[in-house]
Design a protein around this nucleic acid. Structure first.
Lengths: 112, 112
DNA sequence: GCTTGACACCTAGTGACGCGAGGCCTAGCA
DNA sequence: TGCTAGGCCTCGCGTCACTAGGTGTCAAGC
């Protein structure tokens, strides 16, 4: 998977995963890896800053939980976050359609 | 359209557009705008550096043409560029599938 | 007891790259 | 004369994924 291909789409993924219910950072990583069949194997240094950014933007909120000595920061979508997720999904659709329609008209490299 | 969403996918688009036959930088911009129904309205400062980078990488080559006092730099895919295009297409497919499968399992924000 | 690895959090710095802003030139039209 | 469209270019900025490094708990194996 291309190094840069995620740029601008990570927020969508994190918001989507969060929309299924409260989840902590490490869990986000696991869930993305599972659901993408291993295509998205994100570093912690990738995911945590995203969560912080989304929270600063008011799209997520968190509460701490403690289970068997393990503290977890459980994130949940705010109403603003849900709205943003809807926008992001629409943007994703538009983006995919745009790329596909460019690819469609230039089907495959002509062997000269 | 998201500001960053193109990152990592621009090469694919430019290679695809170039695969249809020799084309100059300005033409790449126009063709992408047309074929994406206006979704991709790229700045020259976006496209020219990409063309230069792709050429440095051996994926494109150019020749100058002169028509009615207008000089154009016509780019063409090299064999390596064609191979790269095939790879990039596959990568794009994988990327879309991965994102979609994340989105599929988290259908829409639950109105809690 | 000690080490290793999974679980769980964090941040500073780097590098890639799309894009805005600017500059240069010709042709055509008002 | 000035403006717009066509054509080329580069520099600098900001964003953001990622690397590398740090802290701590707990369970399993030696």
């Amino acid at each position: 998977m291309n190094a840069e291909s995620l740029k601008g789409h990570l927020d969508l993924l994190v918001l989507a995963v969060t929309s299924a219910g409260p989840i902590h950072g490490y869990g986000v990583i696991e869930r993305l890896r599972e659901r993408s069949q291993g295509s998205f194997d994100l570093a912690e240094g990738t995911v945590y800053p995203v969560l912080h950014r989304l929270e600063r933007a008011g799209l997520l909120e968190h509460e701490w939980s403690e289970a068997s000595g393990r503290r977890r920061k459980l994130y949940r979508l705010t109403p603003a976050g849900q709205a943003r997720l809807v926008e992001q999904r629409a943007g994703w659709r538009e983006f995919v359609d745009a790329v596909e329609s460019v690819l469609r008209r230039n089907p495959w490299p002509q062997t000269a």
